[in-house]
Design a protein around this nucleic acid. Structure first.
Lengths: 142, 142
DNA sequence: CTTGAAGCTACACCCGCTGTAGGTCCCATA
DNA sequence: TATGGGACCTACAGCGGGTGTAGCTTCAAG
């Protein structure tokens, strides 16, 4: 049985984060030692590793909850898992497109400014005057 | 003089957000009508438009605060403005690189799975077993 | 003068944690 | 076996960047 500290270290998680995952029901309620400290078996280590890895791939906690539920019912169709992963991929692709547009805009803005004084700065001018903006980017990225 | 609703609509902001910007000191305290409602002059409209545009380009509120301060002192060197913009550009580029790596990982994961049942799903397998991961991505993206 | 939209304040909530305060437990060493 | 100090506990506040709600008041058109 592992303490929360060892569990956290082995999965690259902070101790508070493990407790937070328990609190929101992503990790099951841990067994306790006689003195009330959390004790974990290997199954919990695997579960936490799964969660961290999925987080690193940008999955939301909600998506991870879904994936964990699916992985608990091995006879179900894999299509649902596929759908969650594809949804995640398309979110990543959307963010990429947006960031690429932003990069272009920033590069243009920076490239245009050859002034010395703030008064003549093209960067501030572009920011001040929305009309000079090539595109409307919608909401700021998440 | 404009009401907060008109100001918000003209800049594509929510009314609450305008009040929030005032609360955190990004917008100055507004003048008030006899009955206590906020009233805005054109200068405030410009300021809010500047803020919104910078937000669309992904600048943080802190960076925007800095840019607004700089633009208030037109005799200062433009280099500082340039630095803020370049910092923002490199942040965007870092996020792009990270998202491109994620996209690759997700594509690979999805591409590998040809199973029917969850029990044989490659996607879940990859998520379960960190060793199969091509790279360590560090923290989840912001 | 009425009425209903728009404004006001104050507060809670979203995500995904992170940090703190003030106390308790565990276990290696003396 | 006693002790010290790290690791653990709960409870709660805070981050960024807003958004939503409740329960009022004000404004302006008809």
């Amino acid at each position: 049985m592992l303490s929360i500290g060892v569990l956290a270290k082995r999965t690259g998680t902070k101790v508070q984060t493990v407790r937070y995952y328990e609190q929101i029901g992503l990790m099951p309620e841990a067994e306790r030692s006689a003195g009330g400290q959390r004790r974990y078996a290997t199954a919990q280590l695997d579960r936490l590793a799964f969660i961290r890895h999925a987080r690193q791939l940008g999955f939301s906690l909600e998506a991870i909850r879904e994936l964990l539920d699916l992985s608990d019912s091995p006879e179900r169709s894999c299509a649902e898992v596929d759908a969650v992963a594809r949804r995640q991929l398309s979110e990543v692709e959307a963010r990429l497109a947006r960031l690429e547009a932003l990069r272009g805009e920033l590069q243009r803005m920076i490239g245009e400014c050859h002034a010395d004084r703030v008064a003549d700065c093209r960067i501030l001018e572009v920011l001040r005057d929305h009309e000079e903006c090539l595109s409307d980017h919608g909401a700021p990225q998440p």
